[in-house]
Write a protein that binds this DNA or RNA. Structure first.
Length: 489
RNA sequence: CGGGGUGUAGCGCAGCCCGGUUAGCGCACCUGGUUUGGGACCAGGGGGUCGUGUGUUCGAAUCACACCACCCCGACCA
């Protein structure tokens, strides 16, 4: 087979880049840091959206849409929020161009905006400013809203899907009458993200909370799910923030409680982005290309006819028609690749590159024997199957692939997760990659020192797992429990 | 923002050091034919402001200066 991708073992970053481009998911655009998401990539994102959107609605949320532009002054209303986002905001200063003999068009200096607008890096401010008008009574609560949107963060360094200047995401913004209720919401949505990651992306994640220094700008507590990529680095796959009353206070959002007293509402926000595409790629794919979990594959089964001529192709089409109908009846997405300008070998490689979970090859030999050749993308194994009950067999195979991908990723994470007790062990272990569970004294100073010396960060304080106390590996001071360290994307 | 790299056909590259016919090669594309169970083969064909600007020169893809863009590696972040 032709080597069209850089091998993972040679250069993981280059492999990732090649894969995104060659599998036709996205490409760089004319604008620095902004990508074009191509149909194959977008189809996967759409499947993610559909699944997540359903889960949001099952948990009582509704969708709405807020503006792309935010008055500059709004950003400053929540002190730590502005601190966190100010240095990466795109700003709109004018609303008109005019033609120019030398430069074609120039900004019309007479069209300067009274108040500059920023392109949203996230929507808390505009949303909370709006919520003020919507919330008057405890009867208006909880307010459970999600929006699907694009946001812009002027990142210094970008990577396709993992970090782009503009990215697509969803952001949930909820308002509650009590602290407890808001915390429950924050945790509920984190659990939705865990389920989505594990059941749809087949990507095991660790739920936890961020340390103070890694917390979202404006949050009281940031919960996250952390995943391990194949190169042993960590990727934050989703976040859910308990915002306390910070935004309610900044935007004067008050409600009257049952005792006729005015109170600030309690808030949450939570989001996942097109970064999940990067997570998906780096969790399962191999040197032959993309590997997609069946639940997110735009095409789950591709049928490749092997025909010498048009008559044979016609016979194969008739032969597979009932199988296709039976599979579709089971909700399986099937593509019959009867393009006669490409050879079978070319198609095999192409569909592997694009991550189609199951490939079925059918030729004259199969028609004689009432068989088909079924190849699975995850293990690259091929087997000849009788056509009897093929749809059921394929249905099982897809479920099996989905499960196998999860189990493989889980086994990898477990293999590369270890507990260490001394800083020396830690330094050696971090060079090997993977997750490290170690005791930490809870101070920002120690966290910072570890980061400076090893480039490892505390990914999260896990919600589950070993909670026995110990001594900080660096300072020896007491520690409540082990926390999760890794080098991260 | 520091470091490195790259801009030549749709894609990937050679040519540049040492200036000189009509700027090449592979893939892709078009036509015809033979093929088709792991990226087919033969023959013919089309496609280029060599990133931009200025300069040096009889002559610039090639030399000089400036600029622009993008990519990769770090620091910052979903």
């Amino acid at each position: 087979m032709a080597d069209i991708l850089t091998k993972r073992a040679d250069d993981h970053a280059q492999w990732y880049n090649d894969l995104v481009l060659k599998a036709d998911m996205a490409e760089h655009s004319a604008v620095r840091g902004c990508m074009v998401i191509k149909p194959h990539g977008y189809a996967i994102w759409e499947k993610m959206q559909r699944a997540l959107d359903g889960m949001f609605k099952e948990t009582g949320h509704v969708n709405a849409y807020f503006p792309l532009f935010i008055p500059k002054s709004y950003l400053a209303k929540e002190a730590s929020h502005v601190e966190g986002f100010a240095k990466e905001c795109a700003v709109v200063t004018h609303y008109r161009l005019k033609s120019d003999p030398v430069h074609g068009v120039v900004v019309d200096p007479e069209a300067k905006l009274e108040e500059e607008l920023i392109v949203r890096p996230t929507s808390e401010t505009i949303i909370w400013n709006t919520y003020r008008g919507w919330i008057k009574s405890y009867r208006d609560l909880p307010l459970l809203i999600n929006q699907w949107a694009n946001v812009v963060r002027w990142e210094m360094r970008t990577r396709l899907f993992l970090r782009t200047a503009e990215f697509l995401w969803q952001e949930g913004h909820t308002a509650h009458a009590t602290r407890q209720e808001a915390i429950e919401e924050t945790e509920r949505m984190l659990e939705v993200y865990r389920r989505f990651a594990e059941e749809w992306l087949a990507m095991p994640v660790i739920k936890g909370v961020k340390t103070a220094s890694e917390r979202f700008a404006g949050a009281e507590e940031t919960y996250c799910i952390e995943a391990m990529m194949q190169d042993g680095k960590a990727l934050q796959a989703g976040t859910s923030h308990f915002l306390g009353q910070n935004f309610a206070k900044a935007f004067d959002v008050l409600f009257t409680n049952k005792e006729n007293k005015q109170e600030h509402v309690w808030a949450t926000s939570w989001g996942v982005s097109t970064r999940l595409m990067g997570a998906l790629i780096m969790t399962h794919s191999d040197d032959n290309g993309l590997v997609l979990p069946p639940k997110l594959a735009p095409v789950q089964v591709v049928i490749v006819p092997i025909a010498k001529n048009a008559e044979q192709l016609g016979a194969i089409s008739a032969f597979v028609a009932p199988m296709i109908a039976a599979m579709r009846a089971k909700g399986i997405t099937v593509k019959f690749d009867d393009d006669d300008t490409k050879k079978p070998g070319w198609k095999f490689a192409e569909h592997e590159l694009k991550g189609v979970p199951v490939r079925i090859a059918v030729g004259p030999r199969d028609m004689e024997n009432s068989t088909v050749e079924v190849a699975r993308r995850d293990t690259l194994e091929k087997q000849v199957m009788q056509t009897t009950d093929l749809a059921e067999k394929v249905d099982h195979l897809l479920a099996n692939i989905q499960d196998n991908l999860y189990q493989k990723a889980l086994a990898m994470r477990e293999r590369y997760t270890r507990a260490v007790d001394t800083y020396e062990e830690f330094k050696a272990a971090i060079e090997q990659g993977g997750f490290i569970l170690a005791h930490w004294d809870g101070t920002a100073e120690t966290e910072e020192r570890i980061k400076d010396e090893t480039r490892a960060t505390i990914r999260c304080i896990p919600l589950d797992g070993d909670v026995s106390p110990g001594a900080c590996m660096v300072t020896g001071r007491p520690s409540n429990r082990r926390v999760l360290f890794a080098r991260a994307y």
